[in-house]
Design a protein around this nucleic acid. Structure first.
Lengths: 131, 131
DNA sequence: GACAAATGATACTATTATGGTATCATTTAA
DNA sequence: TTAAATGATACCATAATAGTATCATTTGTC
């Protein structure tokens, strides 16, 4: 089991790279060369980050990507949501069946509390803190 | 993303059910009926729990399963390992490529620290605490 | 205006993990 | 001897992850 997927990992590294540059824009090509991620995959990741307003893109010659939000406000939690969908620890699989405990499921409560803890930590990590 | 899979969830519920009984053994059939999990799937789960020395099984007529370890010593973490393999937050995907940070990767450090936290919590939950 | 260099949109494929089924062998109490 | 249980094992289905490919669109530069 992994909490962080490749997608997310690459996205974080791309964001860190962009954040560290002085330049106004970084091209997909540069990121591909510097991070060693396959080109079409890197492009897909950048496009998703743009769609989700984390990056701002400019097309055409000399185009590229830059941060749309200050690095300090790009949280790990948000990036995970983009690439891994809703983050949940356990969706109580028996919900629709005969859950013997119904409302007062101890397991669910415990899980929820771990969940909150993890979320709090993931929300505390941002791109600036990774530089 | 889910931290806990169906496998693990069903296993926990089966273990809780068994732990709550007075009887010396509980059959797969009974668990299937009480928990509403498909029979072959439940059997597979029970077999894995036996193989991993969490349950003790007896074959033959009136056979069944019972705890091999006291409920208070069956930890969530262990059950997750059995059904979800090695639990890791992030396997540093760039390890074999050109990781620009090499040994001093801030991301990895941060992840490791969340990881340890989560593990500590998962190890604190046991079957007894779920009853 | 043509062209090259960039991103946008989209659709497809491959691999792995998860979820689940099926079947035959073995044990054992009655 | 037989029925009721688990053991072993092999297989299939679905979903998530990882990755590829291609054409359309924009835009700076000559």
């Amino acid at each position: 089991m992994k909490l962080i997927t490749r997608n997310t990992d690459y996205a974080l590294r791309a964001l860190c790279y962009i954040a560290k540059q002085d330049k106004s824009k970084v091209s997909a090509e540069e990121l591909v060369n510097k991070l060693g991620v396959p080109q079409p995959f890197m492009r897909k990741i950048l496009q998703l980050l743009s769609k989700n307003k984390v990056l701002e893109s400019s097309k055409g010659q000399n185009g590229g990507f830059k941060l749309r939000i200050p690095a300090g406000k790009i949280y790990l939690f948000k990036i995970m949501r983009i690439f891994q969908g809703e983050v949940v620890l356990n969706a109580c699989f028996l919900k629709k069946n005969i859950c013997p405990n119904k409302g007062k499921c101890v397991l669910r409560d415990k899980i929820k509390s771990i969940e909150n803890d993890v979320f709090r930590q993931l929300k505390a990590i941002n791109i600036a803190s990774l530089l």
